[in-house]
């Protein structure tokens, strides 16, 4: 099965953008990642088993493209992350601190945390998406949580890893 790009864009555009931003920490790059991901879908002849299969494929492509964006030699002039964050409207001021803390983590932790906490993927699913072992995912998730706990103190509950 396949879905029109417009349907995917409406359904998962924000989600792809958030995942890309969590990785590359730059709004313009995140926009480019969403564009490139949808374009990759359009150009692909791949048939999918379900909507969930499409979603997982899009997220995998978006994460990989976002990772590539962070190592690209050429980077465009852009607003600083601080300026961009200042322009965002958060429901609670603690949310700004949380996003800021996440974005300060190393990339390998950010990706895993985002897929786990925002996209609701399991450790096994994240391992498959990122082509990692489950042990590596658990380790990154645990270390990411520890660092968030250290930064956010009581704003981040201690969890069993």
């Amino acid at each position: 099965m396949r879905r029109p790009v417009s349907v995917l864009a409406e359904r998962w555009g924000d989600s792809l953008y958030r995942a890309a931003f969590a990785v590359c920490r730059n709004p313009q790059d995140a926009e480019d990642v969403v564009q490139d991901t949808l374009l990759a879908y359009f150009r692909s002849d791949k048939q999918f088993e379900s909507d969930e299969h499409i979603r997982a494929w899009l997220i995998r492509v978006a994460v990989n493209k976002a990772k590539n964006a962070t190592v690209c030699f050429w980077r465009r002039n852009r607003r600083s992350l601080e300026d961009y964050m200042d322009a965002l409207t958060f429901e609670d001021e603690g949310d700004r601190d949380l996003m800021d803390a996440v974005l300060r983590l190393p990339e390998r932790y950010r990706i895993v945390l985002h897929l786990f906490y925002y996209e609701d993927y399991s450790i096994r699913e994240i391992a498959a998406l990122l082509n990692l072992g489950e042990g590596a995912v658990k380790s990154r998730l645990s270390r990411g949580r520890q660092q968030l706990r250290k930064t956010l103190t009581e704003e981040w509950d201690d969890e069993q890893s």
């Binding site: 555009g13 924000d14 792809l16 953008y17 958030r18 931003f21 969590a22 995140a30 926009e31 969403v34 965002l88 409207t89 958060f90 429901e91 609670d92 949310d95 700004r96 949380l98 996003m99 996440v102 945390l113 985002h114 906490y117 925002y118």
Partner: peptide, 10 residues
């Protein structure tokens, strides 16, 4: 986490 990142919109 979800509430924080929902501040981002494409």
């Amino acid at each position: 986490y979800k509430r924080a990142f929902q501040a981002l919109h494409a």
